[in-house]
Write a protein that binds this DNA or RNA. Structure first.
Lengths: 343, 343
DNA sequence: GACGACAGTCAAATCGTTTCCACAGAGGGT
DNA sequence: ACCCTCTGTGGAAACGATTTGACTGTCGTC
């Protein structure tokens, strides 16, 4: 916003015939008393000039920018889009603005965004992106956030992350063990697992849940049953294709819905009936889960709600209250892609 | 960021034994000359203190905040998510940050966001959200943006919008006429149309394209053939259901892929074969278009690219160059949901 | 009638930068 | 010897708000 004719508080004050101090008090409805008549004069002056207070200047003196920085892996992924929407709706009434940044799971990029947000004086940092398995990243991030916190900043985590901070997150481990149990109850003993990018903390946690359940329930624990699907539609299809060529199974469980849908399509195209020959289950319950090649049985992880609860946690902390970590557990949505194992 | 121990340029200057002015010059690598030795001293002082310049203070004096406000209808919709990602990638190298706001198609909310962004001193405003058919909204928005522009701001439009501003957009009208022609070539004479929310300018434009093509090609122009699907999966299903009960047709064309997928599923559930009995075509080519109940024939509208080109248009304008409006035309992606009309 | 409390106002300091201006010294050209 | 340019530096004035402290009245109370 270079040049031009910005109207400042001084202009308003002059037009209203009062000091800048008084004008400020009425515009920011401070507790300091102002007489009704001058208040009206200032208000109408502001109105006629189209005055809008400069929040940068205000932030400079109050040391509160009323902005929040959010870091996600990929804003074009509806999983994150939903979270951001929940966050936005949650903080909207409190007059905060949201910066968003997509890190593309690149540790370097993510650290840079954190630095940039700090330079931008955000009041809080939200890590909606999962942690990354990278020692230098974890070390640098911890140091950065520690410094940020000492300077008065607030950080919150909405995923599985090594960062020590107040958090609200999904019970990812529990979600996976529950899905495996669900499959096991239906007679599946060889359940293939399509995992996401191994560098993501969330994938490790989910995979851990799968492994634990397989062991506890005495199912076949076979390395050949797991394959990386990169969290994408195409990756899911490719993963199931290599699984098909490598071993046999009666069910496949994917670490997210996108991969489950990709796998379903690949199976159908290859002529293996879903759920007739192979059952498929996902995780997340994204909007299109019901509209894939076969309506997907999955577990609902309420992303929008995660965002909302993250927002209220944040607001409580900014308000000086004690943070309380929260855990959101999923709920199985039964549709058509899972059935009992063939005997 | 209240309290705490922010380190400012003054601290750096003191530690380095120079004036604030000099410290500023080296930190913001100004063109003003600084000797190599003092530069090193300042740099190492900054390093050891962990100094990060306060961009708010900088913005206040330079009248450049290096931030951009983006307005979308719904950030959880991948259509907008893609655009935002393209924008972000496009401006990232130029050291701009992005504010995003979801207006939910609410005129009041959208105007408030515009005001908030202006108060936040954003250097540019991006309207990725389509215009809304609401006279007061259009008038107020125009006034707001006009004032913003006089104050040195830049506005850019990435959709169909009544706002007069530099723009890059999809050829929505052409997209629809082309899709209708594609269907007509295959012998369809009664093509049903599922439209989006009527208050959206983009829907009007798309619908206009459909109507014009139907007329030009001499197809059946029947009011009973069009129904609102609200741009959603569920809405698409409901729309095709009412269409089915009201009239007959051999093809349905939806104003976006989500509705096309919803319609396809509804048809399949009801036992009408796609494309055997009814062909279905969409618009956008979102990622899951290929993974629906039937792989969808649609027109690719490159949203990510729209965002990127929007970013570069913006940067050119901010750089003082002359804006050039751009039009992006789609490309038909033939998959399996469309076939020739039964005779 | 004196005193304190309080409403109402303003001038000035402050936040952390950038930038304008002044100034000193070095060096080069005539 | 003179002038001019150029490098390198610091002081101080911005930018646009909030907030502190001081100052004037007015009113009620004892």
């Amino acid at each position: 916003m270079t040049g031009g004719s910005r109207v400042s508080l001084r202009h308003v004050a002059e037009l209203a015939g009062v000091s800048v101090a008084t004008a400020s008090r009425v515009m920011s409805d401070s507790s300091h008393p102002v007489s009704g008549s001058t208040r009206d004069r200032v208000l109408s002056a502001a109105e006629s000039l189209g005055f809008e207070p400069n929040r940068l200047a205000r932030a400079l003196v109050t040391a509160r920018s009323q902005t929040i920085g959010v870091i996600v892996h990929d804003i074009s992924d509806p999983y994150f889009g939903d979270i951001v929407k929940g966050l936005e709706d949650g903080i909207h009434a409190s007059d905060y603005r949201l910066f968003v940044a997509s890190s593309d799971r690149d540790p370097e990029k993510e650290l840079n965004y954190v630095r940039a947000f700090q330079a931008q004086q955000v009041d809080a940092l939200v890590f909606a992106a999962s942690g990354l398995n990278d020692p230098t990243y974890e070390r640098d991030l911890t140091a950065l956030v520690e410094r940020y916190r000492r300077a008065g900043g607030v950080a919150v985590v909405l995923s599985d992350h090594s960062l020590a901070a107040p958090r609200v997150r999904f019970d990812n481990r529990g979600a996976l063990t529950e899905m495996v149990a669900y499959l096991a109850e239906r007679g599946h003993r060889r359940v293939a697992y399509i995992t996401g990018p191994p560098e993501l903390a969330v994938c490790e946690v989910r995979f851990g849940g799968y492994r634990a359940a397989v062991k506890d329930l005495g199912l076949d624990a076979d390395e050949a049953l797991v394959e990386d699907g990169r969290f994408t539609l195409r990756g899911g299809g490719e993963a199931v294709a290599t699984l098909l060529g490598r071993t046999d199974f009666t069910a496949v469980l994917a670490a997210n819905d996108l991969m489950a849908i990709g796998a379903t399509r690949e199976l159908v195209v290859r002529g293996v009936a879903v759920p007739g020959s192979v059952s498929v289950a996902g995780l997340d319950d994204i909007a299109i889960a019901e509209y894939g090649p076969v309506p997907l049985t999955t577990m609902r992880l309420p992303t929008y709600e995660l965002g909302q609860r993250g927002a209220s946690l944040l607001l409580r902390i900014l308000d000086g209250q004690e943070p309380d970590d929260q855990l959101i557990v999923g709920e199985i949505i039964e549709r058509e892609s899972v059935t009992s194992a063939p005997v």
